[in-house]
């Protein structure tokens, strides 16, 4: 039972709109899980429930077997101190569709900010770590540029470095390439492949079927707020059993 994250019977509604309808998911260390599905199927919401960006309506959320959320009908069933939630949530690094880089900080300052503020590491230590990470994503020469001067692909690579600077054990990717011009998608996927190869646990919400086939240990297909089908990429993408999965991949492949 050494799950990195686990969702147990998670429901999430926004007002009258029920977005997640009983999600059960667990991810093992080192596993790369790709989540596919149509827009509005609840993929992103599921990801955002993992690190408290969205509070679940009902269900349980665990990070490394530590309970961080247990709710029923939008009411907390357990009282977890905010410091503990924060301490557990920083085990999860997140990369957003819209990058969300801090525009008033340079690339390297973006990467250094959270370690300095949250982990209280020294400026020098944060800086040397940031240089190393920017090198890893291939952007050491852009360290002193402001985000407005970077391309979408470069921004997203800085965002990945920024998340990695907190030394997370799991990386969550929320449609990391959906806002990119087609010719910039590759450079971001390359970095993600590098991470996967290095053994990072990753949950990737994506529309990149090719990436899912190449990199994922497991593919999850979501539809209308439930996990419709899961298995290896081979099983889910190429030989789906469920009608909804079949019709989805028929349309996009």
């Amino acid at each position: 039972m050494n799950d990195m994250v686990r969702l147990v019977d998670v429901y999430k509604s926004f007002g009258d709109l029920e977005v997640l309808k009983g999600i059960n998911l667990s991810v093992k260390p080192g596993e790369v899980v790709c989540v596919l599905g149509a827009s509005g199927s609840g993929k992103s919401t599921m990801l955002r429930c993992l690190n408290h960006l969205e509070r679940i309506t009902s269900g349980e959320v665990y990070i490394e077997n530590n309970l961080i959320d247990k709710r029923k009908d939008d009411k907390d069933l357990v009282d977890i101190p905010p410091e503990r939630i924060q301490a557990l949530c920083i085990e999860l690094g997140m990369v957003f569709q819209g990058f969300n880089l801090f525009p008033h900080l340079t690339a390297i300052e973006n990467v250094m900010k959270a370690p300095i503020l949250v982990k209280k590491v020294s400026h020098e230590e944060a800086k040397s770590k940031a240089v190393e990470l920017l090198k890893m994503v291939g952007l050491e020469d852009k360290a002193d540029e402001y985000p407005s001067r970077l391309s979408g692909g470069q921004k997203q690579r800085v965002a990945i470095a920024r998340a990695l600077a907190m030394e997370p054990k799991i990386m969550l990717f929320d449609e990391p390439t959906s806002a990119l011009d087609p010719e910039l998608v590759g450079e971001v996927l390359e970095v993600m492949k590098k991470l996967a190869a290095a053994g990072m646990t990753m949950i990737v919400v994506t529309h990149e079927v090719g990436f899912a086939r190449e990199v994922s240990d497991r593919v999850i297909f979501m539809d209308a707020g439930v996990i419709c089908e899961e298995g290896t990429a081979q099983e889910v993408i190429l030989n789906p059993k469920e009608e909804r999965t079949k019709s989805f991949f028929n349309k996009i492949l």
Binding site: H52, F96, H104, V118
Partner: peptide, 27 residues
């Protein structure tokens, strides 16, 4: 200021006040 800025700050473990004073207000 785009609400993604607060989300990114939170996802990086910043407290509300840290995000406000280091990320949101400076922008």
């Amino acid at each position: 200021i785009d609400k993604g800025q607060m989300e990114a700050s939170k996802a990086l473990g910043m407290t509300y006040n840290q995000a406000m004073f280091h990320i949101i207000i400076p922008q």
